[in-house]
């Protein structure tokens, strides 16, 4: 087939493209992903019994704000990386900002704490379940974000995979925060961060394999 014939073939009968494909695809993906994540959480853990009291404490909102802002930044990164030639702009700063802020809070808590409190602030009582639950809850979001990306056109596959992974991890952490009883900034800065890094690294590894087009 000659190139002119291919051009004629591709153009023949070409119909209008629906607008906002990217937005609709991500909305569908995140809708199903969030549904799946909430379902896993509801079946596996439920919400914490003292949620009504917890929402009165500022640190509860910090615990939600940290993954929520990372989720927003990762969504921006993922949608930009889904389009060829789209500049990333200040996305990296948007991802770094909540992490730096969280770590500043953590360091402030650690330097003002008495030596015997350090262990509790860092490890809490549930660091192992945090590390296993957040990645588990984020699985539906992980599959969904990669599906959304796969239907678009990422050209930087490792970065795109990491963004999809971080999006899933942050979403998972956000859902898990409704169950998690820990209220110390250092705990959140360390274990939430590591838990979100697991799907991020997985995305970076799988991206070049799964996202080719």
């Amino acid at each position: 087939m000659k190139t002119d014939e291919l051009v004629a073939m591709l153009a023949s009968g070409a119909t209008a493209i629906e607008a906002n494909t990217l937005q609709r695809r991500y909305a569908t993906a995140l809708g199903w992903g969030a549904f799946g994540a909430t379902l896993i959480m509801a079946i596996k853990l439920g919400v914490r019994s003292d949620l009504a009291e917890a929402i009165l404490l500022p640190v509860f909102w910090v615990k939600l704000a940290f993954p929520a802002t990372l989720f927003a930044a990762a969504l921006l990164a993922a949608t930009r990386l889904s389009r060829p030639g789209m500049p990333l702009g200040h996305v990296a700063a948007g991802i770094a900002a909540p992490i730096v802020a969280m770590w500043l809070l953590a360091v402030a808590a650690l330097i003002t704490a008495a030596p015997e409190e350090l262990d509790g602030l860092i490890f809490g009582r549930t660091w192992t379940s945090c590390l296993s639950n957040i990645p588990t809850i984020s699985v539906p979001l992980f599959v969904a974000s990669l599906w959304a990306m796969k239907g678009l056109a990422p050209t930087r596959l490792t970065l795109a995979g990491s963004a999809a992974g971080l999006l899933a991890g942050a979403g998972g952490a956000l859902v898990y925060a409704l169950n998690c009883p820990e209220m110390a900034a250092p705990f959140i800065a360390i274990w939430y961060m590591l838990s979100m890094l697991i799907p991020t690294v997985l995305g970076a590894i799988l991206g070049p394999w799964l996202l080719r087009w």
Binding site: T3, L6, P84, L152
Partner: peptide, 23 residues
């Protein structure tokens, strides 16, 4: 050309076409 056609829904008319095609 096939890639441009299959992925044409990812072009954002607000962005430069050069960057999209080049990528």
């Amino acid at each position: 050309l096939l890639a441009v056609h299959n992925q044409r829904h990812t072009y954002d008319p607000g962005e430069p076409l050069t960057a999209w095609v080049h990528a």
